[in-house]
Design a protein around this nucleic acid. Structure first.
Length: 566
RNA sequence: UGUCCGAUGGUGUAACUGGCAACACAAAUGAUUCUGGAUCAUUAGAGUCUAGGUUCGACCCCUAGUCGGACAACCA
């Protein structure tokens, strides 16, 4: 597929609030005008469209201000993390079109340094080893409106703390018996400042450091310092970390290291889907979808398999903007972005999703004509292809009505339509199954003088249909995807229900479509527009004998609307 | 009876930082079309959460409310 000519940045767009902050910093000479961002995922799940927003933001900002972006895995919890996720995340970021060059880091790279930082805090009497259980710590933390109680271990001597912390590291204590805590303020109105846990004992194998450590830093103790070590200038993260910021600033100040500036933005929500890693994992594990890359998933790999392009997702991220208020973006905007992209780059093909037979009574029995059709009306350079035409065709069952309303522009008894790139035909009669009344054959006559390109073909007819020659058609599997949930906001649950009660039972329909022979050239992940029906992408499960197409998105259809109005 | 954050058409984001509320999606109408797609033109829809205040002038500044969100993992 060709490279994009998408105007990814509307030339004179006004600045978003993050750009304003950055430009102000540049004006004030903060960090000598340097801009350095990072994308810091935890490798415990697959990336989704919400992460794409963050990735586009971080890499986009760095690009705009001639800076750099690091990829850093926040891998401080070995029990939840896995290399499978590390690999998928790198693949997805690359696929989106971003490059961290040689700046691939892991929080685990800094474990030794982080340990030293902890010792520094102990020496300053700003941290202590606490022997309380998790339950006790939780009980003594207080509530948002009531202060907590100080730990009885809070006033241990520096020497005792140093010794105990070293022995924690040496593996002398079982999991859960002790933690290292910051010594801040158990009465702080900010819960995160109430002597938070810095290190816990975890005799677990880490995907990178192996069995080298049996104590691991908490995210809060690792994240800000990791940014500092990497000399990140602007740490962009989501809103829920806003209340953590005072803690991060406290660490940086007490340890005395380089201070990044954290800026929080509102995470992306989208209608008819869920975005939390926990829920997505549940959908996968409980078999509601076929995997992380199920084309109905809002994951990057799901969207990729569905047939979305990186350009369309980047353009989407640009279009939704960024702010601090909670938001829920209409999926139709995402759909618009992929249609806009695919309209210009996808070649057209004629495919009949729900075939009904058409017999051209006055067309010679044995004749096959090779007719030409344009591959992409938006792009002359894509050229033309040949389509076989013969006496028996398939058209879409929807394109015929025995007793049509006035607004129906398609085929009906006595009416004429154009077959795209072929002839104008008229319906003469229909054949039905006697018991069911189901139409089995539509008999038509064609006007030989109306073949596309001939003078008589300019005759005005109301409708143009797509078609395939029955004996030349190729059967392919088509997976028709629809939204995963029936409710706009599946997180908005009624009494006694869960988000899973709103799953759409019709989110996947598998059918066999009849397609013109040119489809045989289709390659995996190639995108096509099936004329008049939608955009389709060749699924990776395809074989030479059995092509499989995923419907990316249907074409806009103003007929269904007119039809519904009735 | 806490701290922090937020509030602008149906949705999202703007408003030269105090000067006639704009853009995109969605919607509607018409033109055009060998895709009821695309394209083009047009229309409708908010007076900016509320109440006060400052000001010649407030979406923007101040005060007090209201509503919504985040925070009480040895998760991130």
């Amino acid at each position: 597929m060709e490279e994009p000519k998408l105007p990814e940045e509307k030339a004179l767009r006004s600045l978003n609030f993050i750009e304003e902050i950055i430009e102000e910093d540049i004006r004030n000479g903060v960090n000598e005008g340097r801009v350095h961002t990072r994308f810091p995922p935890e490798p415990n799940g697959y990336l989704h469209i919400g992460h794409a927003k963050s990735i586009c933001l971080n890499f986009g900002l760095a690009k705009k201000y001639n800076g750099m972006t690091n990829l850093r895995f926040d891998d401080t919890n070995p029990v939840k993390e896995d290399v499978e996720y590390v690999d998928s995340i790198m693949e997805d970021v690359k696929w989106l079109g971003f490059d961290w060059e040689d700046r691939l880091y892991y929080a685990s790279d800094y474990f030794e340094q982080l340990y030293e930082y902890a010792v520094t805090l102990i020496r300053k009497e700003r941290a202590y080893v606490c022997d309380m259980s998790a339950e006790e710590i939780s009980e003594t933390r207080g509530t948002p409106t009531r202060p907590g109680k100080e730990s009885p271990y809070r006033n241990r001597t520096v020497g005792e703390n140093i010794d105990l912390f070293a022995r924690m590291r040496n593996g002398e204590f079982p999991d859960g018996t002790r933690v290292l805590r910051a010594r801040i303020d158990m009465a702080s109105p900010n819960m995160h400042m109430r002597d938070p846990v810095l290190y816990r004992i975890l005799h677990a194998h880490h995907h990178r450091t192996g069995d080298q450590w049996c104590i691991y830093p908490m995210y809060d103790f690792a994240h800000g310092q990791s940014d500092s070590i990497e000399r990140i200038t602007h740490s962009i993260c989501t809103l829920e970390f806003e209340v953590h910021r005072p803690l991060y600033d406290w660490f940086i100040r007490e340890i005395g290291i380089y201070p990044p500036r954290q800026i929080e933005f509102a995470r992306l929500n989208m209608t008819y889907t869920v975005m939390s890693k926990r829920k997505l994992l549940e959908l996968v594990q409980q078999g509601f979808v076929s995997g992380w890359d199920d084309p109905r998933m809002p994951t990057i790999c799901g969207l990729r398999r569905r047939g979305f392009t990186p350009e369309s997702i980047r353009n989407f991220a640009e279009t939704i903007g960024v702010a601090k208020r909670d938001n829920i973006i209409d999926v139709s905007l995402l759909e618009f972005c992929i249609r806009e992209d695919l309209n210009r780059r996808a070649n057209r093909l004629m495919a009949i999703l729900d075939p009904v037979k058409v017999v051209i009574d006055n067309y010679p029995e044995e004749l096959t004509e090779e007719l030409e059709s344009v591959n992409n009306p938006e792009d002359e350079s894509r050229g033309k292809r040949k389509m076989p035409f013969s006496k028996t065709l398939f058209i879409e069952r929807d394109d015929f009505m025995e007793d049509p309303p006035n607004k129906f522009f398609r085929l009906a008894p006595g009416r004429e339509v154009r077959l795209k790139a072929a002839y104008i035909i008229r319906c003469e009669s229909v054949v039905k199954e006697p018991e069911t009344g189901r139409i089995t054959e539509i008999h038509c006559t064609y006007d030989p003088m109306t073949r596309s390109g001939m003078p008589d073909s300019n005759r005005k007819v109301k409708g143009t249909l797509h078609w395939v020659s029955a004996k030349h058609a190729v059967g392919v599997e088509v997976r028709l995807y629809d939204r995963l949930f029936v409710k706009e906001n599946p997180d908005d649950i009624e009494e006694g229900k869960t988000y899973k009660d709103y799953l759409n039972p019709d989110s996947l329909k598998v059918i066999t479509a009849m397609v013109e022979p040119a489809v045989k050239n289709a390659q995996v992940s190639e995108k096509y527009q099936f004329e008049r029906t939608g955009y389709f992408s060749v699924d990776k499960d395809s074989t030479a004998q059995n092509l499989i197409f995923n419907r990316v998105v249907p074409l806009k259809d103003s007929w269904v609307k007119t039809e519904k109005v009735k």
